[in-house]
Design a protein around this nucleic acid. Structure first.
Lengths: 236, 236
DNA sequence: CGCGGACTTGATCTGTCTCAAGTGCCGTGG
DNA sequence: CCACGGCACTTGAGACAGATCAAGTCCGCG
C-alpha cells in the first residue's frame, strides 16, 4: 500500500456524506413548473457525449447513468443518479458525458432562463449539484485507492438508506435483513467501479460465501449485518 | 480489457473539454468585492475534512489541492485547482475534503449571503463549478479505466494550455519545445493519479527514454512533440 | 563534507485482468 | 410440456500491470 500519511487517530467516518440512491418517485415531490417533461424507457439513451445541452435535466422518477467512452471502447460510468439528481449542465453548451436510463425514467428539463428567474428552483438544483459533487469526490477516492472488495462493499452500502454515512443511524433494534435492489447488471457495476465483470462477480460471490450478503436473483441482495458490510468498505 | 462497447467510428476527442491549469494570477482578474482575502504559504493546510465551511473559496493566485484520506492513511487527491477555481461548498456545511496550498496562494472567501445578493458573482462561480464538474468526470474516467502510462501522459497534457482538448489549436508553426511546470512532487502526482510514486517515476522515465519529454529538474518538463504525447493519453 | 529528502531503478510479489469453460434462467417454438 | 438458444452470470487457470520491498543516486543545505 502506498501513500500512507500517518494520521492514526483520524477517521473520515464522520465526514462521509453517506449519500444514497432512490429510484422511486418522491411522495411529496416538488411540482415541476415551466419545465418540459420527458419519459424514457429502460436502457434508452437520453444524451450522447457531444450533444447540445444547455438545459438542466432533473430526475423525477427512476435511475439514470452518466458515462464516458474511450475511443477503443472502454467505458466508465461516472455517476449513478436517482430521484432529485440533476445532469446536463457542462462547462460548454455541449454535454461532456452520455446519459442512459437505468430504469423507466421521468425527467424534467428546465430552460436556462427559467432557472435564472426562479431563485427557489435555482437553490434546489444548486444544493443537489453540491451533493453530487461530494459523491464524485467520494467516487474518486474509491476509484483511485480502494481494492475490488472495498469497492463492491462501498457500492452496496450506498444503496442502503441512512446507513454508513455522516449521520449513520445505526441498526434499528429488532430490524431484520436489509434488502436492496441493485438495479444494475454486473457489467454496469463493473464499469462504475472501474473493474471487470469477473472481478465484480467474484467479489459478490466472496461476500455471499462469508455470509455477509445473500441473494437468489442476483440483483436483489439481502444484507444480514449492515455494520459488518460497512467495515469492509475501507472508509470506516 | 473489459467493457468494450463497439463504437469504432466514435472518438471523444472533440468532446474533451481540455481544461487546463494556471497558477499565475490572471492579468485582468475580477476584483474581489465584499470578500475576505487570505494568503497561505506553500504546503499550508487551508481546510480539513470535517471543517465547518459554508463559505465559498475562490483561488486568486497559486494552486490548491483537494484530497481525502482513508483511515489507514491512503490518500487520494481529488482535484488540483488553479486560478479561478472554487472550493469549500459541500452538500452539508461541513467540508467533505481537505484543501492544501500547492504553492504560495491567495484566496477570496465569499459569504453565502454575498453570493445570494450578487448575480454576476454567482454566475461566475457557478460557471466555474460546472467546469470543475467536467474535470471530475474526466478524472473518473482516468482513474477507472486508464493505464499508468495513459494517466501520466494525460496529467502532463493537462498542464499544456490550449492543447489536447475540445478546441485544440494544434501545434503553432515554428513553435519549439513546450515547457510546463509540474508544481507537484512525484508523491502528489501519484496520489492524484491513483498510482504509487514508483509507478509514476517509471512512467516519467519511460517518456524521457523515448524522447517524448525531457527534463533536468524533475518538475520542469519540456515536451518536444505535444501531439505525440497527446496520442498516449488514451483519449484520442 | 555529511546529512536528509525526493527521486530512480531493480527484483519480486500479488491483485486484478484475460481467456476460457461452464451454469442457470428465461422466453420461444415445436 | 419440454427442447433449444441466448444472455447474464459464475468459476477456474494463467498472465501481467502495477504494488511492494530494497537499494541506490542526485542534489540542496547546514
Amino acid at each position: 500500500m502506498d501513500a500512507r500519511h500517518d494520521r492514526s487517530d483520524f477517521s473520515n467516518a464522520k465526514f462521509d456524506s453517506g449519500w444514497s440512491l432512490r429510484f422511486s418517485a418522491e411522495p411529496a415531490m416538488h411540482k415541476p413548473e415551466r419545465a418540459k417533461l420527458f419519459s424514457y424507457h429502460h436502457r434508452a439513451l437520453i444524451l450522447e457525449e457531444g450533444d447540445k445541452a444547455s438545459s438542466v435535466f432533473e430526475v423525477l422518477e427512476g435511475g439514470v447513468i452518466l458515462f464516458k467512452l474511450l475511443p477503443d471502447g472502454r467505458r466508465q460510468i461516472i455517476e449513478v443518479l436517482g430521484v432529485g439528481d440533476v445532469f446536463g449542465l457542462s462547462a460548454t453548451d455541449v454535454s461532456d458525458v452520455a446519459a442512459e436510463a437505468l430504469t423507466q425514467v421521468r425527467v424534467a428539463v428546465y430552460d436556462k432562463r427559467v432557472i435564472d428567474s426562479d431563485a427557489a428552483l435555482r437553490d434546489r438544483l444548486f444544493a443537489r449539484l453540491r451533493q453530487q459533487m461530494c459523491a464524485l469526490h467520494d467516487h474518486a477516492l474509491l476509484l483511485g485507492r480502494k481494492s475490488a472488495q472495498e469497492r463492491v462493499a462501498t457500492f452496496i452500502m450506498r444503496l442502503v438508506p441512512d446507513r454508513g454515512g455522516f449521520a449513520c443511524a445505526g441498526p434499528k433494534p429488532g430490524e431484520g435483513a436489509t434488502r436492496v435492489d441493485l438495479a444494475m447488471t454486473r457489467q454496469e457495476i463493473a464499469d462504475y467501479l472501474g473493474l471487470t465483470i469477473e472481478t465484480v462477480s467474484r467479489a459478490f460471490s466472496a461476500l455471499r460465501r462469508t455470509g455477509i450478503i445473500a441473494y437468489d436473483k442476483q440483483d436483489a441482495v439481502a444484507i444480514g449485518d449492515v455494520c459488518r458490510l460497512c467495515r469492509l468498505t475501507g472508509s470506516h
